[in-house]
């Protein structure tokens, strides 16, 4: 059943291409460092060399190998994106589901909090929180992004639950005396899985971009290399004005490629699940 669904989705050209791009970049991040064994933090060559046989993407001001930094950066960025996406997914689904299902006072309270947080621009909230934390490892940055990125999802889950909970099978479960949690987990969530998955894909892309934004403004990870950190140093060392294109183009291009592929995948899934958009 699940396999058939995957095969059917893969038959959509847009989805297949996006999944291809995503898999390629994930492989770059996880297998790349195993094959290209250059330390991303060591000075391994002359500073600011353009791409050559020895350094496929050149070196930066500190003589570090940019290809090595980008490969390790992909890994860190994917880690932050996935973890942050999962955190936001968990909070958003739970808050939205509880608010929608319970209704009444619980709903009012949770929805108010969610709406206010939704109004506060999440990137600004992330910067504010990160500014007051001294040491930020990837896990912590993922946590910061995750706890600020969920309100949108919570509002959507809530409205889905509101329409789902009026269906017969939910009434039957209620009549059988099942607890709210059991109804939410057994009846409601499974009906929204495709929707939640689509959302996770978007959250993942958003979190990877957010990591880069945090790094650019100077409150990214303080240890390790991410795509955002590579861009940050390119900016700090004025790479653009000095024409060091090999320093800032590759990390940004990979970020844009993976984020675009994720968005395209989510759009393709959206069209697959709601045929009206396909124009049929």
């Amino acid at each position: 059943m699940a396999l058939r669904l995957v095969l059917e989705i893969l038959r959509i050209k847009k989805a297949a291409v996006s999944i291809g791009v995503i898999i390629f970049i994930v492989l770059l991040g996880f297998l790349g460092p195993l094959f290209y064994k250059v330390d991303p933090t060591e000075a391994v060559g002359l500073p600011e060399r353009p791409p050559s046989k020895k350094y496929p993407l050149g070196t930066n001001t500190f003589g570090q190998d940019i290809l090595a930094r980008v490969l390790h950066g992909i890994r860190t960025s994917l880690y932050i994106g996935t973890l942050a996406g999962l955190i936001a997914l968990a909070i958003g689904t739970v808050v939205g589901a509880v608010a929608g299902y319970k209704g009444g006072f619980t709903d009012e309270g949770l929805t108010l909090v969610t709406k206010v947080l939704y109004m506060f621009p999440s990137i600004l909230l992330m910067i504010l929180i990160a500014a007051y934390v001294k040491y930020r490892d990837p896990t912590l940055v993922a946590l910061i992004i995750g706890v600020t990125a969920w309100p949108d999802l919570a509002l959507c889950v809530r409205s889905q639950i509101l329409s789902l909970k009026e269906r017969e099978f939910v009434y039957l479960s209620k009549m059988a005396g099942y607890s709210s949690i059991r109804v939410i987990i057994e009846d409601l969530i499974p009906n929204m899985l495709s929707y939640i998955f689509m959302y996770f894909v978007l959250l993942l892309a958003g979190a990877m971009l957010a990591e880069a934004g945090l790094s650019m403004i100077g409150v990214g990870i303080t240890k390790g290399v991410s795509l955002g950190i590579v861009l940050y140093w390119a900016q700090a060392m004025d790479a653009v004005r000095r024409g060091l294109w090999w320093w800032f183009i590759p990390p940004g291009a990979i970020l844009v490629a993976v984020a675009s592929a994720l968005l395209a995948l989510s759009t393709a899934l959206d069209e697959y699940f709601s045929p009206r958009l396909r124009g049929e």
Partner: peptide, 16 residues
């Protein structure tokens, strides 16, 4: 899709 997922600052770097 590609534009909406491009951070402004990276587009800025390219344009600059």
């Amino acid at each position: 899709i590609v534009l909406s997922q491009s951070p402004y600052y990276w587009l800025a770097m390219l344009l600059l």
